[in-house]
Amino acid sequence: MEQAALQQAVAVIEALGASVVAVTPEVRTGIRTLPPGHPFDTVFDQTGLTARTFAVVIDRGNSVARQYGLVHGFPPALRALYRQFGIDLAAHNGDDSWTLPLPATFVIDQHGIIRSADVRVDYRNRAEPAQTIAVLQQLRARS
């Protein structure tokens, strides 16, 4: 859902002079691997996959995410649950570390300074695009 929401917001973001870069450890981006009816099936809607006009980059092994302090592992019980749901992170991410980034949205200004950071422990919520846009508007007003 977040990717689709970003796609809805990207025109406004770009009109404010900014670019969007989505970073994922997933190597096999854009490949549908969940069968219909799978419990995780519907939330990962395909709108973003087919229609994303912004940059999507692959952070293999979460090396950049680690520099931002976002990388965490999985306890064995949760790994087992994911496998039970047919999600093999090692295959998706091309490494067997079973690590993921916390979902996070950073607005970085032209001097390379982070101006806002929205970091979520609960991956089921994400930065609200309207908030991101508000930060960019403030940046632009000051420059």
């Binding site: 990717q3 404010l16 900014a18 969007v20 970073v23 991956y123």
Partner: peptide, 10 residues
Amino acid sequence: PIVLVFYRGM
């Protein structure tokens, strides 16, 4: 500016 969005995967 860059809006940098980390996400888990699709």
